[in-house]
Design a binder for these strands. Structure first.
Length: 426
RNA sequence: GUGGCCAUCGUUCAAUGGUUAGGACCGCGGUUUGUGGAGCCGCAGAUGAGGGUUCAAUUCCCUCUGGCCACCCCA
């Protein structure tokens, strides 16, 4: 064994896991592209201040989990590995003047993110998210589109029973009044709360709503509900989104106590949850509207909405349900030869087959023909092309176990290509 | 960041305070000279790292590293 192992929370993906992740990412890209979302590839690091400003300096993601890079040489600013994609996408939107494009601007990415967190199943320090953002439109129509897109993606990959938990977290206009109402509600039990919850009570009382502390949870059950405190425009927006989703065939569950962890959300907020799953594996993704974020990072006021879905968790959920798709390799040809030492000729012939459009590989060792054929079968090849001592070729169908008489190379290659082509349909 | 459980070949399981840590699967090779999946035979391959206790540690203790669970957070 090597003296090195992969660092904590950072893992290798290979074999079936790698194929499954690539497949889930592929489905994400095509879902996004089909809906008119353009691909955006962001740098892996941004100015730390972007995240600090956007996500909020007191959030765990920034306060504890940000990978800050050591400054070097002529770096004018401090950099950090991106812990999420939204801030970078909005930064790019502003930087490149995308407000001069037709609005909303629809952007999508599938990308690696980094958070210094304590690893667990379904929670890694490097993870992959499918992220979609629609920037520049304030009305509820785009909310419906974005929520539906995520649900449709999850249904497409085989997680049709995912629940959409939907809430509105209001706006800077109506949230303060609600926060005050919450503080009043929790005040009687304040001295029985833990230190963490007491801090929340003072600074961000909405977080108390999903506290696990028994006292807080019991009190939260009777807490005032945000939807009753929304201002008229927020209430109208929320109602329109809810009705629109129902009309679009997306079943959503009202989740009045749903509070998302990133501070920049306004109005529509939702999560994609797997019913029956405990812990973090059940949360496949979530999203929200963030109408104030553009201003927060120094741009013109720009409404926007987006979601992030964890590819790692999608794969995990499929794995646990035994629903990982098989990703069959294309029908391949395997080049063998009677002469154990004819590897160079085998490699050359395989190359010729590939040039002709087939999937082909050669046996590169110096082993007897029997071993070569055995390797071909384990390799999953559909047929073997055997180089005869006289230079002629034989085509052996490894599935049927039949073999034609040796013939001139051009004819046998043509037959092999035909066989491989048909093999894709088997 | 808090609490807890865990760590033996690539994988999955054994065993032990004292000779060469064992099996299965996988891999590689052989099975009498040019044809695959079975069988048989063989080969390779591990006690995560570092300390300590002991005549002797893979086994007991500590630290580190990594995994997992709950909390936290979130995807």
């Amino acid at each position: 064994m090597s003296a090195f192992q992969s660092p904590r929370g950072l893992r290798d993906l290979y074999g079936e896991a790698a194929a499954a992740h690539a497949w889930a990412a592929e489905r994400a890209w095509s879902a996004a592209l089909a809906a008119g979302y353009g691909r955006i590839d962001l740098p892996i690091a941004e100015e730390s201040a972007l995240f600090e400003r956007a996500i909020g300096g007191t959030s765990d993601v920034v306060a504890k989990e940000l990978y800050r890079l050591e400054p070097r040489g002529d770096d004018a600013v401090r950099l950090a590995l991106r812990p999420e994609a939204t801030a970078g996408i909005l930064r790019a939107y502003l930087q490149h003047g995308m407000r001069s494009q037709p609005q909303p601007v629809r952007l999508a990415t599938v990308t690696q993110l980094f958070r210094y967190d304590r690893p667990q199943k379904g929670r890694y320090r490097q993870f992959t998210q499918f992220d979609i953002e629609a920037i520049g439109e304030a009305g509820p129509g785009i909310d419906i589109e974005v929520v539906e897109l995520g649900a449709a993606y999850l249904r497409d990959v085989g997680l049709a029973d995912v629940e959409v938990h939907l809430n509105s977290v209001g706006c800077p206009g109506c949230r303060p009044a609600y926060a005050a109402a919450l503080q009043a509600h929790f005040a009687p039990v304040a001295d029985r709360l833990g230190p963490v919850d007491r801090t929340r009570l003072a600074e961000n009382p909405m977080r108390l709503l999903d506290s696990k502390d028994p006292t807080a949870a019991e009190r939260a059950a009777s807490a005032p509900i945000l939807s009753a405190h929304l201002c008229a425009p927020c209430a109208a927006h929320a109602a329109a989104v809810e009705a629109g989703l129902a009309a679009a065939g997306v079943r959503s569950v009202a989740a009045p106590r749903l509070v998302r962890g990133l501070d920049y959300y306004t109005r529509t907020a939702w999560e994609y949850l797997l019913p029956g799953e405990q812990g973090q594996q059940g949360a496949l993704g979530g999203g929200g509207r963030y109408d104030g974020l553009a201003e927060l990072i120094g741009g013109a006021a720009t409404p926007a909405i987006g979601f992030a879905i964890g590819i790692d968790r999608v794969v995990l959920a499929l794995e646990e349900r035994g629903k990982l798709p098989s990703t069959p390799a294309p029908a391949a040809l395997y080049v063998a030869s009677i002469d154990p030492d004819a590897a160079p000729a085998r490699v050359a012939l395989a190359s010729r087959l590939r040039t002709a459009g087939a999937s082909a590989r050669a046996d590169t060792g110096s082993r007897k023909i029997g071993k070569q054929l055995e390797a071909a079968v384990r390799d999953g090849a559909i047929a073997a092309i055997i180089i005869e001592p006289d230079g002629q070729l034989s085509l052996r169908d490894l599935v049927a176990g039949t073999q034609a008489d040796p013939g001139p190379s051009a004819a046998v290659i043509a037959a092999a290509l035909e066989l491989a082509k048909g093999g894709d349909d088997r």
